[in-house]
Simulated assay, not measured.
Amino acid sequence: MDERAALSVVGNVVSAAGDDCAVIDGLVATTDMLHETTDFPDGTTRYTAGWRAVGASLSDVAAMGAEATAALAIYASPSFETAEIEAFLDGCLDVCAAVDAEYVGGDLDGHEEFTVSTTALGRTDAPVYRSGAAPGDVICVTGTLGRSGAAVRLFEGGETERANELFRFEPRVATGRSIAPYASSMMDSSDGMARSLHQLAEASDCGMSVSYADVPVDDAVEAVAADPSEERELAIHFGEDFELVCTVPEESLAEAADASPAALTPVGSVTDGGVRMDGESLSDRGFTH
């Protein structure tokens, strides 16, 4: 059973599952787990690991259009080294400070592999779910895509300083809050743009049609990609970019773009059925833990 199949089991048992965060009386809550072998390439510093792990959960809060309030992390490792723990905590504190949230602690545990489990909390009286898209809405993405894929290629090539910089993304909390009043559906792109489109389409019972030429591909992708095919793979399917993918009614697009602190790029439109890019079926592939 792969991750997608396992998630379907959870969804069959837990009726509230399925969005980036759980929503309870104005509180949003999310939790994530990252492992060294699947999430932290060789050369990832503990500072980057702390930033990225907590940032991943804060990105879920952003996807609900919520204000981020606090985050916690479990740090598990085969051994405890003062410098590594301090660097990890500095990363946690700094990413929280970047979105005006508070890092409030967590837990330590021995484990055979460096592993981090994070929780983030936020608040909103008007959460944005994945299920509100309607035909005619405009599909938009924030920022640029492919940044994390490019970082992994740089890690593989030994360019760890630049790779760590690319791996430290800023969660789009301010942007999520700013565009929430206009968005009909929203989620983050942690599993890749392609998978996000499929998930939004499934939740909203609609289709998606996008143009690759309109996708804002990060400059770092072109620098590391061997050819246009790899560039497209890193931008569309690799995932782990933690940008926002949202739908906005056409009449609200200009206001949403003006309100957004990050670039908000239209890439397509919501349709009656099917998920397509440039008129062809778009494969439901993305990041898998």
Rank of each mutant, 00 (worst) to 15 (best):
E3T: 14
V9S: 05
V9P: 01
V9W: 08
V9A: 13
G11M: 09
V13F: 11
S15R: 13
G18T: 10
D20G: 05
A22T: 15
D25I: 11
G26E: 02
L27I: 15
T31R: 10
D32C: 04
M33K: 01
M33V: 15
L34V: 10
T38M: 10
T38C: 13
T45N: 09
R46V: 01
R46N: 08
Y47M: 04
G50H: 04
W51R: 04
R52G: 00
V54T: 05
D60Q: 12
A62P: 01
E67Y: 06
L72W: 09
I74E: 03
P78Y: 06
S79Y: 11
F80N: 03
E81R: 12
T82A: 11
I85Y: 11
E86T: 05
A87W: 07
L89N: 05
L93Q: 12
C96M: 09
A98E: 09
E102Y: 11
E102Q: 08
H111P: 00
E112V: 12
E113R: 06
G122R: 00
T124A: 12
T124C: 07
V128F: 06
V128T: 09
G132S: 06
G132Y: 03
A133C: 08
A134Q: 11
P135A: 06
P135E: 03
G136H: 00
D137K: 03
D137G: 08
D137H: 09
G143M: 02
R147Y: 05
F155G: 02
E156H: 12
E156A: 15
G158T: 13
E159M: 04
T160I: 14
T160S: 06
R162Y: 04
L166I: 14
R168N: 11
R168Q: 13
P171L: 04
V173E: 08
A174L: 09
A174C: 02
A174S: 09
A180D: 04
S184P: 00
S184E: 06
M187H: 02
S189Q: 00
R195N: 05
S196A: 15
Q199V: 15
L200H: 03
D205N: 13
M208Q: 11
S209E: 12
V210T: 12
V215M: 14
P216I: 05
A220I: 00
V221C: 04
E222V: 14
V224E: 01
L234G: 08
H237S: 03
F242E: 04
E243A: 02
C246Y: 00
C246N: 03
V248R: 00
S252E: 15
L253Y: 12
A256Q: 07
P261M: 09
P261C: 09
A263N: 11
A263Y: 03
G268V: 06
T271C: 13
V275T: 03
G279T: 08
G286T: 02
